[in-house]
Design a protein around this nucleic acid. Structure first.
Lengths: 143, 143
DNA sequence: TTCTGTGCAAATGATTTGCAGCCAG
DNA sequence: CTGGCTGCAAATCATTTGCACAGAA
């Protein structure tokens, strides 16, 4: 599998868009992320490395990541659009604690299979899915 | 099971909030909905019946529906908060066509069971979940 | 009477866009 | 060179809030 750097550069050149220092910087910061960062968070981190960067550039670049397949937009329920790194990460769903915000990435192959089956039953060709399980985690329950 | 009218009135009185003509009107319109209306859509319909109503009232009232358990907030991916009527409708998930927006309500008991199991495995007490399956519906595929 | 509710308009917060200059290809 | 990119600020869009008045309990 190609590394994200290559994927992005190839995506850009295929679309006759350009690689720039800003995009490179945002990409580096994004690839170092472990969670599901929102544009503001990334903007804050990127700004520490390059004071002159504008937040519109961060928004625009994240959208490029999404188009190029490096990231996926997710919505956890606060009003923010978060970007989930897709590279290296295999598909997963989310188990979210409603009290403390703890977010565990989960996958259950049996569920995945049933989802395909369910879609097929309605004559849909599945392109993707999102599943969010909400609850209270163990430590919050004990408080 | 109590009818939604009663549920709402009881919720209000329990919280020492008041039933008003505006809330009643918005409730009537909302109960007549079949889909997953966004505030703007409801505002438009309500406005036809009462020109003087303000959109802030619609937003505030929808939030009350959500608190009282009559509705559930859902996010389909456009930037809108939609309200899904909960009364009469049993729980369901969504199968959404990415081309035409067709939205089929689906439920698969086996998936529901596996979700509980998955949560339990991570020591979570589930309070709810949302599952969105995205794909292309049959008619769009044939075009 | 006493709060809560309402319409209106202004405020907010996230995201987008217009524009003049900058820079990668 | 030249069209895509950038920072900035202004513009949008959905949603929220402040306020003075209206109306339910």
């Amino acid at each position: 599998m190609k590394d994200p750097q290559t994927v992005f550069v190839e995506y850009l050149s295929a679309k006759r868009r350009k690689m720039t220092a800003q995009r490179q910087l945002i990409l580096d910061v994004f690839l170092a992320e472990t969670g599901h960062p929102a544009p503001e968070e990334l903007y804050a981190k990127v700004k520490k490395l390059d004071k002159s960067i504008g937040q519109a550039t961060v928004y625009r670049t994240l959208k490029l990541f999404s188009e190029s397949g490096l990231a996926k937009e997710v919505h956890f329920g606060d009003g923010l659009t978060r970007y989930e790194p897709k590279f290296g990460h295999t598909h997963h769903d989310h188990l979210i604690c409603e009290r403390c915000g703890l977010n565990i990435e989960v996958v259950d192959e049996r569920i995945e299979l049933l989802q395909d089956e369910l879609a097929a039953h309605h004559s849909f060709t599945l392109t993707g899915h999102r599943m969010y399980l909400y609850g209270i985690c163990q430590s919050c329950r004990l408080v």
